[in-house]
């Protein structure tokens, strides 16, 4: 018995810590809600450049929707987690828990008679 196939793979898109944190922060919003860029920046504590880089990767993966609009003639960017983004976070958390729970006994299987 090998470990391959038993352990769930980790989603590389949100495996990077900054993107994981952005995803977790967006998952805290209620269904149908979206948040402005500066407000999200405040919650995750990242620089604007850093945050937009990671948001672009999340958007490319289809995990985040970026809506650019105007409010009182000022451009505003709203962000929200997509359904697949939310599922990706759930799967990632499940995978981490599985990883935490299984490796030791599985590795010892090979030694057992």
């Amino acid at each position: 018995m090998t470990i391959e196939g038993l352990l769930p793979p980790l989603d590389p898109v949100i495996h990077a810590q900054p993107r994981l944190r952005v995803t977790v922060a967006l998952a805290a919003l209620d269904d149908g809600d979206q948040i402005t860029f500066p407000r999200l920046q405040e919650i995750v504590g990242m620089t604007a450049g850093n945050l937009s880089t990671h948001l672009r990767k999340l958007e490319d993966a289809g995990y985040v929707t970026v809506t650019k609009t105007h409010r009182h003639r000022t451009p505003v960017t709203y962000l929200a987690l997509t359904r697949s983004g939310r599922r990706a976070l759930e799967d990632y958390t499940t995978a981490l828990r599985a990883l935490l729970a299984t490796p030791e006994p599985l590795l010892r299987l090979e030694d057992s008679p």
Binding site: L20, R21, V24, A25, A27, I43, L96, R97, L99, L100
Partner: peptide
């Protein structure tokens, strides 16, 4: 990386949000 650390990151960011 460790799953413990990542779960702690998720937990901390969730609470902060």
């Amino acid at each position: 990386f460790s799953p413990e650390k990542s779960l702690a990151v998720i937990e901390a960011q969730h609470l902060e949000a």
